[in-house]
Design a protein around this nucleic acid. Structure first.
Lengths: 192, 192
DNA sequence: GCTTCTTCTTAACTTAAGTGAACGACTTTT
DNA sequence: AAAAGTCGTTCACTTAAGTTAAGAAGAAGC
């Protein structure tokens, strides 16, 4: 479990044994059952998450309707907006599958950044990379039709289509479940 | 000019005079005429930008058509995707107005991070905050219609509607110029 | 075992966005 | 001054997404 995390970190910066021990000492590994809620709308939180195994989603509730805006799977991290803005959360985070997730909080960050400034560099790099990825995704979303977006997803994250319910995928694509269903049959017919 | 930048930084971390001098020594302030191109598609670049005055846009050219995905005005920074990924740029960056922009490169970053680790913290904070903002914008985009997106823009960045041509705004909203024009008259008629 | 809920699909209808073409108002170029 | 290009708008037409409703299949709860 720890090693999965350290292998991931090793891709960005080397960690000494002392630094690894410091991480282990934080005792941040948690397991959650499918359906478990990590963060609720309205809640103040200073917790960040990193998915080691399983799948977690972010969703809003607008007019009683769930709007899913993000899925996070193996080796993806989440720093909820409310942690950065110090405002109550506008969304929920919950597990779609049984999951193993690291849960850290701001206090831990401050502490470990002081002891090992290297982690500040790690977080800068991860944050910059995620920002770049998010902006590209946003650009692709803006410049393509729902159908193209579905085809992109099929290309880039085919696993999601398997592990995520259709109606959650639909709002992730910015459309209704009915449109997604139609769009899928439309694509099928073209292929035949 | 320098002070505009330092006032901005002061909102996040305090800078000593030595640190300010180090920034000034980098000689990163540039002025550009309207229409000037900062980055071209296909180009490798390690330059980051920060807009002190004016307005800069990011746009793709897809099938000969410009697709504008971002506008950056006073006190907004850009680290182009290609700088992070070390790949040729997929998009252009150009000035919509006469602008004053800081232009830094990766070498400078490495250098100044070593001399003054405080800047690494600054970049982490800025990057985390921008990431949070970008994700919220993306969520709003996904969960609203073109008309709602236009109304949101009217609320959140009314200045853009003044300083940016309609057809660039349209692709920024993910629609055609014709749709934007229609949508605007639709809204007008509702108000009357 | 039965009910209830959730999920997905289908259908009919409404609404809005994409497309292609055209026009006038301006700007820029020559 | 004339020509060419840009920009915003409008129109007619096509295409697709939203909406409302209904039904089938499966999962979860009692």
């Amino acid at each position: 479990m720890e090693n999965t995390l350290f292998d991931f970190i090793a891709k960005y910066i080397p960690l000494s044994e002392a630094e690894k021990s410091a991480v282990v000492a934080l005792d941040i590994f948690r397991t959650f059952k499918k359906g478990a809620v990590l963060l609720k709308e309205g809640q103040y939180s200073s917790e960040g998450y990193f998915v080691l195994k399983g799948c977690v989603r972010i969703f809003y509730i607008v007019d009683g309707e769930e709007k899913t805006t993000g899925f996070y799977t193996e080796m993806e991290g989440i720093t909820p907006n409310c942690v950065v803005s110090k405002q109550p959360s506008k969304y929920f985070i919950s597990c779609i599958e049984d999951s193993i997730v690291t849960v850290s909080n701001l206090g831990m960050e401050v502490e470990i950044f002081e002891k090992f400034p290297k982690f500040e560099k790690l977080c800068r790099i991860l944050s910059e990379q995620l920002l770049a990825k998010t902006q590209i995704s946003f650009d692709e979303f803006k410049t393509s039709s729902p159908e193209q977006r579905y085809l992109n997803l099929l290309q880039n994250r085919p696993d999601l289509l398997q592990r995520v319910p259709q109606h959650q995928l639909a709002s992730y694509l910015g459309i209704t479940p009915q449109s997604l269903s139609r769009l899928r049959t439309r694509i099928m017919e073209k292929k035949i």
